[in-house]
Amino acid sequence: MKLGGLLLAAAALSLATASGEARRAMPDVADDVITGDRLPRTLEEYGFFIHADAQVPTLGVVPYRLNTPLYSDGAEKLRFVYVPEGQEVGLGEDGLLQFPVGSAIIKTFAFGEGEERRLIETRVLLHRADGWLALPYLWNEEQTEARLAVAGARIDLSTPKGEAISYRVPNKNQCKECHGLDGAVTPIGPKARNLSAVWLKEHFGMAPKDAGVMPVWEERASASAEDAARAYLDVNCAHCHRPGATASNSGLDLRWEQHDPIAIGIMKRPVAAGRGAGDLLFDVVPGKPEESILLHRMLSNDPGVAMPELGKSTIDEEGTEAVRKWIAGMPDS
């Protein structure tokens, strides 16, 4: 069942020649640290990794990917989930995996290829008895340690496309701006529709009927323009633009399962967009991407206009192209 993890672990052990703080014998995940009431100061305290700098997870920490991922300035993202031994994973109404108390979701952001790869931050979501807690950990220059950074940070770096940016590590509150739903922190990514059916079956013995229905981003050319764009908008926008979340007051609901045209922005007037609307009148104008506020804001880098507000400082050329194609192909009303 956890074969992938075992293989990785074995590979890692055979490679374990270097020494350093970030490298240790295969640790046990520290369940008491996950469920305790402290804010652990270093990532190491959790014991998620054998080689943290190489992002080699320990036994029980399972890597995964999302079909359509969130855009983060082109960062490479390494995702892992940990579920305490013997615990069951359930399925929520919207297909969000329901991880039991004691679980953790781990996401590391890295820039650079191969030897040049540099880990920037690792974000963890801990499921404690009183709910989920989101914490950001910032990697040091030497790549030996990631320390808690509740106030976040800014780091100068280059994106894969060569753009020099001031990368924002979110603070603890900003974690909640995206992960907040009805006032509580919640995971966003791991929904059945955006996960591999094979992975779900293998690791959690689940077979939800809509598993993996969102297009795999690299293969979106074979999906419909609508599916590609709606998957992108769901993953990149709907954690705020949905009822009960940060941008609920906009009335815009970009979830995959929302089918009301006005709710997803078609001929919907903005509410509190302010100067974000530019000279435009509607969120989405069928057939006219250049007149659609939704795309206008995604194509901006200006704080106060740019969407999403958090988590990126460059324009996603691929994502905006998918949205442009969808709007352009809509029949005029």
């Binding site: 800014r154 001031s166 924002r168 509150n173 900003q174 909640k176 701006e177 907040g180 704080p303 106060g304 507000e309 958090l310 400082s313």
Partner: peptide, 12 residues
């Protein structure tokens, strides 16, 4: 000199 976020101060 603000570089990010949609508002100066957000209270939730």
């Amino acid at each position: 000199g603000q570089q990010g976020a949609g508002e100066g101060l957000l209270v939730t």
